[in-house]
């Protein structure tokens, strides 16, 4: 009960930030530690929900309904997140805004997306034909040589089964055309040699001061104590090159990846 009350005060904080969170991927404030910020993952999956459920009326920039600018935090009736929730779940404006039967996770993520001022990267990416994209993925695009989807393919590169739910179109496109600038630090290729003279090439899953967890080139989960390593190298270059596919095929690939939303 108490916790519930306190969470209300976090919500109060959140509601004061429309438009500001736009810039705040990480709203860490003067005191430290708050465990109640919108995560990047939530904002990104909110994009998917928004694209599916909201974009028709509210538009890509969230400003096509008169008097409402979702991206910049201008709402008609709602102020707090819970009021936004109520409007989405129950509808508003005498039925002009219908009720949406969203899962709690969808609801939370779409609110995060709105509160985050939308993802500024998400706007200008062209999205092609997902069926053609799937063929490219498994064919001349060469993606399936390293990536796994829904139980099929190698495990050397990240499993893309739900990549469409956690990445924006802009992020996906950038990964294809300019992987070096898009590669997340955790995914940098690594090479290590143990004191038992074993050389391991793999992809990092986690690391702390004393240990590292990875999936090796044979698709096995491995964990090492750093004190057992003779060599530990992290490559700044991704293991893939920028794609040679033309723009329209990149758009197809992005479209296919966006359909990969997990189970």
């Amino acid at each position: 009960m108490n916790i519930f009350k306190i969470q209300r005060s976090y919500i109060r904080f959140k509601k004061m930030l429309p438009g500001l969170l736009f810039f705040m991927t990480n709203p860490a404030l003067a005191q430290d530690s708050g465990d109640h910020q919108y995560t990047t993952e939530a904002i990104q999956s909110g994009y998917t929900v928004y694209s599916q459920q909201c974009v028709l009326c509210h538009g890509r920039q969230g400003d096509t309904v008169d008097g409402i600018d979702l991206k910049n935090g201008l709402f008609r009736g709602a102020r707090s997140d819970s009021e936004l929730e109520a409007i989405i779940l129950n509808g508003a404006a005498e039925g002009r805004m219908p009720a949406f039967d969203l899962l709690e996770s969808e609801l939370n993520s779409v609110i995060a997306y709105i509160r985050a001022g939308f993802d500024p990267d998400g706007a200008s990416v062209s999205i092609g034909d997902p069926a053609r994209g799937k063929e490219l993925f498994n064919g001349k695009g060469g993606c399936s040589d390293c990536h796994r989807v829904a139980g099929y393919g190698p495990r050397t590169a990240p499993d893309l089964s739900y990549i469409g739910a956690i990445r924006t179109p802009a992020s996906l496109e950038r990964n294809i055309v300019d992987p070096a600038s898009a590669l997340l630090p955790i995914n940098r290729p690594i090479r290590l040699i143990t004191r038992y003279e074993e050389t391991v090439i793999g992809r990092r899953l986690n690391e702390d001061t004393y240990t590292i967890q990875l999936v090796d080139s044979n698709g096995r989960l491995r964990s090492f104590r750093k004190s057992d390593l003779v060599t530990f190298e992290i490559s700044q270059e991704p293991s893939k090159l920028p794609t040679a596919l033309p723009e329209d095929e990149v758009a197809d690939l992005v479209a296919y990846l966006l359909t990969l939303t997990g189970l």
């Binding site: 990480n26 430290d32 990104q44 924006t168 992020s171 600038s181 955790i186």
Partner: peptide, 10 residues
């Protein structure tokens, strides 16, 4: 990298 995870507040 754009959109990369960063240090949170906790």
């Amino acid at each position: 990298a754009p959109g990369a995870p960063t240090i949170g507040i906790g």
